[in-house]
């Protein structure tokens, strides 16, 4: 089975929609008798995979209408739990050495690569053609590797030694902003990794609201993160109604910044207004082309500059 096989691929499954993997996608006949074991798509909070405390789910369908899975429909309480987990993880994660964060992110890329076939499968279920899905997964893995390498270079590129007019040593270093709320774009894998990786590589932790129509790859990404030595709570992923969850993230007083990448234009204003309550840093939607060169913008949007002075003397 060429598409889904290989190391890390989905196990071969039965023939028809009843038996398939992602929502019963028909795949090659290998064992007429065996019924596939489907996955329950849950939330990812503090390194664990709970269902929504609300008990709610919503059906996720393929573009042509075929049922794929019931995703958890997260609630305000889930947002709060996720923010709590992200805050708890912040001290430890931001305190890691950049080299260590870089290695862990690279490890995530290794795990992503290992699940290549599964992601291709999920992206095809979400409506991408076979080649496009494969290219998308390739790009997502490469994007993650690109960001992983920034971990131990940001300090040099975004920091400085400042030539003040006096006998002082003065230097500026970039530091992570804290807990970042991320409303992910609808590009279900490449867009998702393009907003998550730049937030965490510098030491931030985050709460991500996954694409509402195509949340399944986000849950699979959570499984990758859970098996990559990434400490629990660094990335928390919620699925559900974007319009319900984003305002709670925007108004939460323990969230320091917001990435509104996946927010429709008309909702940007109200979310920015809510974010002003504790002066969150807000990255407005940029209409990003996720395939192109990303630049450093998404990295620097969630950095603070700290400047330290000390006298020079004997």
């Amino acid at each position: 089975m060429s598409e889904a096989g290989g190391v890390g691929g989905r196990p071969p499954t039965g023939s028809m929609s009843e038996a398939g993997g992602v929502g019963g996608r028909p795949t090659e006949k290998m064992s007429e008798q065996r019924l596939a074991v489907r996955k329950t798509y849950k939330l990812f909070i503090g390194g664990a995979f709970p269902r929504s405390e609300s008990g709610r789910t919503y059906p996720v369908n393929a573009p042509e209408g075929r049922f794929l899975a019931n995703a958890s429909q997260a609630s305000r309480k889930d947002v709060r739990d996720a923010v709590g987990a992200a805050r708890k993880a912040f001290g430890g994660w931001s305190g890691r050495t950049p080299y260590n964060r870089g290695q862990i992110l690279y490890r995530v890329a290794e795990m992503l690569e290992g699940r290549h076939a599964q992601f291709v499968d999920e992206l095809r279920a979400a409506g991408l053609g076979g080649n496009a899905a494969a290219r998308e997964v390739d790009a997502a893995v490469d994007r993650w590797v690109w960001y992983a390498g920034w971990a131990d270079k940001l300090g040099a590129v975004a920091g400085s030694a400042n030539p003040v007019a006096g006998p002082y040593f003065n230097f500026s270093t970039p530091e992570p902003t804290g807990v970042v709320g991320v409303v992910a774009p609808d590009s279900p894998l490449l867009g998702l990794v393009s907003v998550v990786a730049p937030v965490i590589v510098s030491g931030n932790t985050c709460v991500v609201v996954a694409s509402e129509p195509a949340p399944l790859p986000a849950v699979t990404l959570a499984e990758v993160l859970a098996t990559s030595d990434l400490p629990g709570g660094v990335v928390n992923i919620l699925t559900g109604r974007r319009a319900e969850l984003a305002p709670w993230l925007a108004s939460h007083l323990d969230v320091n910044a917001l990435d509104l990448a996946g927010v429709p234009d008309e909702q940007v204003g109200p979310l920015e207004e809510a974010a002003a309550g504790n002066l969150k840093r807000v990255l407005r939607p940029t209409g990003d082309d996720w395939t192109g060169d990303q630049g450093t913008r998404r990295l620097t949007a969630f950095l603070e500059t700290k400047t330290v002075w000390h006298p020079v003397g004997v």
């Binding site: 400042n162 030539p163 007019a165 006096g166 002082y168 003065n170 500026s172 500059t305 002075w309 006298p311």
Partner: peptide
């Protein structure tokens, strides 16, 4: 030191 400022210092 305290309350030192300079145009080169963010």
């Amino acid at each position: 030191t305290y309350n030192k400022f300079d145009p080169t210092s963010p």
